[in-house]
Simulated assay, not measured.
Amino acid sequence: MNREETATTEVLNRLHRAQGQLAGVIAMIEAGRDRRAVVTQLAAVSRALDRAGFKIVAGGMRQCLAGQQDGKAPPMTEAELERLFLALA
């Protein structure tokens, strides 16, 4: 497995975990759980999504630095990567 496939697998794993966490948050709200506990879990979901996003941006940066193309689209420009990064901020 190459670096890009590994990174994709890691991102998908993070997103699946976040999906499970979000389902847990929804269940907590439906069960009337304490708001503090709900917000704590919601913050964990948010961090998981942020980390997945940063992993995607890091992969794009690595691809640009290496000058690689996946054959599907040209590498992102520095400005495009910056916009993606700032979208997560």
Rank of each mutant, 00 (worst) to 15 (best):
D50F: 13
Q41C: 08
T77Y: 06
G60K: 10
A73H: 09
T40H: 13
G67N: 00
I26Q: 06
E82V: 12
A27W: 15
M28H: 14
E82K: 15
A52T: 01
A44G: 01
V39C: 08
M61V: 15
D70M: 01
K55E: 14
A52Q: 03
K72R: 06
G53T: 03
I29D: 10
L65K: 12
E78Q: 15
A44T: 02
A43W: 06
K72H: 14
V38H: 05
I26M: 09
D50T: 04
D50K: 12
R35H: 14
A79D: 10
A48Y: 08
A66D: 09
L22A: 11
L81I: 01
A27E: 15
F54W: 09
A79T: 10
R51M: 06
Q69P: 05
G67I: 00
T40W: 11
V57G: 00
A43H: 07
R36N: 01
K55F: 10
E82S: 11
G32P: 00
K55V: 12
R47F: 06
V25F: 13
M28P: 12
E30P: 10
L81D: 01
A48G: 02
Q63L: 04
L65R: 13
E78D: 14
T77G: 02
A31I: 05
A43I: 09
V38Q: 00
Q68I: 08
P74T: 11
T77L: 05
A37K: 06
Q69H: 13
A43M: 05
R36Q: 06
V38W: 01
V57P: 01
R35M: 10
T77N: 09
M61F: 13
D34P: 01
L81K: 12
A43E: 08
A66E: 07
V38P: 00
G71A: 09
G60D: 04
G53V: 00
R62G: 08
T40I: 11
R33H: 03
V38F: 05
V57T: 03
K72T: 03
D50Q: 11
F54S: 01
A66R: 13
G60I: 10
K72W: 09
A27R: 15
R36F: 09
G71F: 03
E82Q: 11
A27G: 10
C64S: 10
G53M: 00
R51I: 05
G53W: 02
G53I: 01
Q68T: 11
G59C: 13
R51A: 14
L42R: 12
R33I: 01
E78L: 12
L49T: 03
E80A: 08
M61H: 15
D34T: 04
R51E: 13
R35W: 13
L65M: 06
E80I: 06
A44E: 06
V45M: 09
S46P: 01
